[in-house]
Simulated assay, not measured.
Amino acid sequence: MRLLVLGGTHHVGRAVVETALERGDHVTTLNRGRSRRPDPGVEPLTADRADPAAVEAALGTREWDAAIDTWAWAPSAVAHAADLLADRVGHYGYVSSRGVYRWPWPPGADERAPLVDGDPDSADGADYAAAKRGGELAALRAFGDRALLARAGMILGPYEDVGRIPWWLRRVERGGRVLAPGPADAPLQYVDARDLAAWMLTAADRGLGGAFNAAGPSGATTVGGLLGTMVEVTGADTELLWAAPDALEEAGLSLGTELGLRFPGVPDPTGLHDADVSAAAAQGLHCRPVGDTVADTWAWLRAEGDPEPRPDAPDPATWSDPAKERELLDRLTGRTPADRS
């Protein structure tokens, strides 16, 4: 397959490139060319997505069998690329998000749940949910039923530049007592970026279009399973001490929000981890065991170091306050400040 990847240097984009190369596809990438060298075998095109003239010049009059777009900011960039490619690309896969559903997310919701408003021509990417919905509308306007909208939830795996799992791995690596957002048996729903990439490429082969909640089954692991696996993989001398959501809320700590277990001021689960993913599963999406995802992410971190966070990634410093954590840990274990000294 002749594949154009709009992006291709981080997380899902990099997973798409590597998976496509393994399949034997001819891969072209379009990005700014600033983050990392192209993989061997990749044909790189250079342009800033925010510069329509540069994108048009870079793409020229070329044709591809499929394109996969990982853009997460102003929808107008998706609209411009999709409009340029509509007559020259057979299939357009857009990496969207479950954030396009209107809050609060209904438990067990499928693809028919209410959606946020979005403008495909908006040059404003500040509202992530609206931007992703705008990107969806742009892809649909240009490609119709030739567009695949992959509404991913929590995307894990190597190359993550959002910071969630790399941050937790480094936190666990340091050892000692680690405050963890409970309850430990809270179910998680996720997709490994490489599994999402493989599914989107297979969908492109088949010409599969439409919107899909793109994740593995709810409860394939729990937050205890995820963090416990990190302890095992890193080999750290770490003790996880679990705090209930209301205790974290009372202490002014936002732990748990980074994993979508709750929002500040809303201690109950957010709905991120109980989507109906039966439609995607019926079309072949599967998710590898969490142990494989964590081990491979840890191997990548050790080999390449911590990634530079993407511009819109949350600041991990807001997830943790050492002084507040020590206070809550002491309360959970019955220690006093005198015990620490």
Rank of each mutant, 00 (worst) to 15 (best):
Gly209Trp: 11
Trp319Tyr: 15
Gly219Lys: 07
Gly207Phe: 11
Val100Ser: 04
Arg164Val: 15
Ser341Gln: 04
Thr61Gly: 14
Pro289Arg: 02
Ala113Thr: 09
Ala220Gly: 13
Gln189Arg: 01
Thr19Ile: 03
Asp124Leu: 09
Leu188His: 02
Pro309Phe: 02
Val78Lys: 05
Glu304Trp: 09
Trp71Phe: 12
Asp237Pro: 13
Asp276Tyr: 12
Val17Lys: 03
His273Asn: 08
Ala303Glu: 12
Gln283Gly: 00
Tyr94Asn: 11
Gly33Arg: 04
Leu84Glu: 14
Leu149Tyr: 07
Ala198Leu: 00
Leu248Thr: 04
Ala251Arg: 02
Arg331Val: 11
Thr46Tyr: 14
Ala152Lys: 00
Val16Tyr: 08
Gly260Pro: 10
Ile68Gln: 01
Asp117Gly: 13
Ser35Trp: 12
Pro107Ala: 09
Gly228Val: 12
Trp319Lys: 09
Leu259Gln: 13
Met200Leu: 10
Pro181Glu: 09
Glu136Cys: 05
Ala130Leu: 05
Ala138Pro: 15
Met154Trp: 14
Asn213Ala: 02
Leu259Gly: 13
Thr336Arg: 06
Arg331His: 12
Ala243Lys: 07
Glu308Pro: 06
Leu85Arg: 09
Ile155Cys: 06
Arg302Asp: 02
Ala129Arg: 07
Asp237Cys: 08
Asp119Leu: 01
Trp71Gln: 07
Asp205Trp: 08
Gly175Gln: 08
Asp83Pro: 04
Asp83Cys: 07
Leu240Phe: 12
Leu285Val: 14
Glu325Cys: 07
Asn213Thr: 10
Tyr94Glu: 01
Val172Cys: 01
Leu261Phe: 15
Gly265Met: 07
Val100Tyr: 03
Pro104Cys: 03
Pro166Met: 10
Ser122Asp: 12
Arg310Val: 08
Asp25His: 09
Ala280Lys: 02
Glu308His: 08
Ala214Ser: 14
Met154Val: 10
Thr336Pro: 04
Trp167Cys: 11
Val233Lys: 06
Ala79Ser: 05
Pro337Phe: 02
Thr61Glu: 14
Pro158Ile: 00
Glu258Lys: 00
Phe143Pro: 02
Val95Ser: 09
Asp185Arg: 07
Pro245Thr: 11
Ala150Trp: 13
Tyr94Cys: 00
Met1Pro: 10
Glu327Thr: 15
Ser35Gly: 02
Leu45Tyr: 05
Val95Arg: 08
Pro106Asp: 05
Leu3Arg: 07
Ala20Phe: 06
Met1Trp: 04
Arg2Lys: 13
Trp298Leu: 08
Glu258Val: 07
Pro52His: 11
Ala53Arg: 14
Val277Asn: 04
Ala113Gly: 05
Arg326Ser: 08
Trp242His: 12
Thr234Ile: 07
